[in-house]
């Protein structure tokens, strides 16, 4: 087994390993053609509107409302996914029970299941005449075709992120610290809150941010279950599609750029969380 060596120390000088030019050149070419050029085209297209034009689009009541729905519901869904995802991660890591491995494998389902399939399945399950929807209807909750439907789809999409970022850290927790805490007289709940939880916070935040980013952009699973009513349950990605159908390319691009900006900020936030975590706890 090779000892991991911090490459920063080793490669101050030229490396003996070949292929730098080839692989980096290829990487940059692919990145440029597949990712950067199309994204740049989008930015150029939107900048044709000027900053004030983009601002006008963003503050148009219908667009603002769609952005609010996408963001608001996504925040709520990411929060839910983080709380329950945290419980799921804890249970899967710390407890033994029949079917644990199956449950563990199932967590990744949203990664593997196509969003359209998830969309029609969730819609038929949570519709007023669906298996779960009928029960919810009895207690007066309309799930499908309301913002609650968007919420359900976003929780589905975000859950694995919330679980998988926290799970490895729970596995790493040093039990001796917990023991020490208990021996020193702390109650279990105090130990959990004061000793176990703090080091998990960066991972929870990262999982939250990832689930949030995925939720904001999600389209396939949501359109089947959302209801798509302007000002109520219309999400920003759908509004892009609608703007395209109205031949409003500039408007579509403007919303897209706004969402892109948000993606950037979210990615940045994740990086900052990880940098902070590295300083504070010594790991990512």
């Amino acid at each position: 087994m090779v000892e991991p060596v911090n490459p920063r120390l080793r490669f101050r000088q030229r490396s003996v390993i070949p292929g730098f030019g080839l692989t980096l050149g290829y990487t940059l070419t692919c990145l440029g053609l597949v990712v950067l050029l199309p994204l740049a085209t989008l930015v150029v297209k939107a900048s044709g509107l000027g900053f004030s034009g983009i601002w006008d689009v963003a503050t148009d009541p219908r667009v603002a409302s769609a952005l609010r729905v996408s963001f608001g519901v996504s925040l709520l869904a990411a929060l839910t996914a983080s709380v329950f995802g945290g419980i799921v991660a804890w249970v899967l890591t710390r407890y033994d029970f029949p079917g644990r491995k199956l449950a563990d494998a199932v967590v990744d389902l949203p990664f593997a299941l196509p969003t359209a399939v998830a969309g029609i399945a969730l819609a038929s399950l949570y519709a007023p005449n669906g298996l779960v929807g009928a029960q919810l209807a009895k207690i007066g909750i309309e799930a499908a075709y309301t913002p609650a439907g968007i919420f359900i789809a976003m929780v589905f999409i975000g859950l694995p992120f919330a679980v998988r970022t926290v799970q490895p850290l729970i596995a790493e927790i040093d039990k001796e610290v917990e023991e020490a805490s208990a021996i020193l007289g702390a109650s279990r709940i105090t130990t959990l809150l004061r000793v176990v939880l703090p080091p998990l916070i960066p991972a929870v935040l990262t999982g939250f941010a990832l689930a949030f980013a995925r939720g904001v952009g999600e389209y396939g699973s949501i359109i089947f279950i959302a209801g798509n009513l302007p000002y109520v349950s219309e999400i920003a990605p759908l509004l892009i599609v609608i703007k395209l159908s109205e031949f409003d390319y500039a408007g579509a691009s403007a919303i897209a750029v706004i969402m892109l900006g948000i993606s950037f900020v979210t990615l940045l936030a994740i990086n900052l969380i990880q940098a902070w975590s590295r300083r504070r706890f010594g790991y990512v």
Binding site: A127, N129, Y145, I223, G227, N228, L229, L238, S245
Partner: peptide
């Protein structure tokens, strides 16, 4: 009075007929 606005006529029909809204 419109609770759901689908993007196409077919979407609306499915909402009304299959989903019971």
């Amino acid at each position: 009075n419109v609770p759901v606005l689908d993007t196409g006529a077919r979407g609306s029909t499915v909402t009304f007929a299959q989903r019971g809204l």
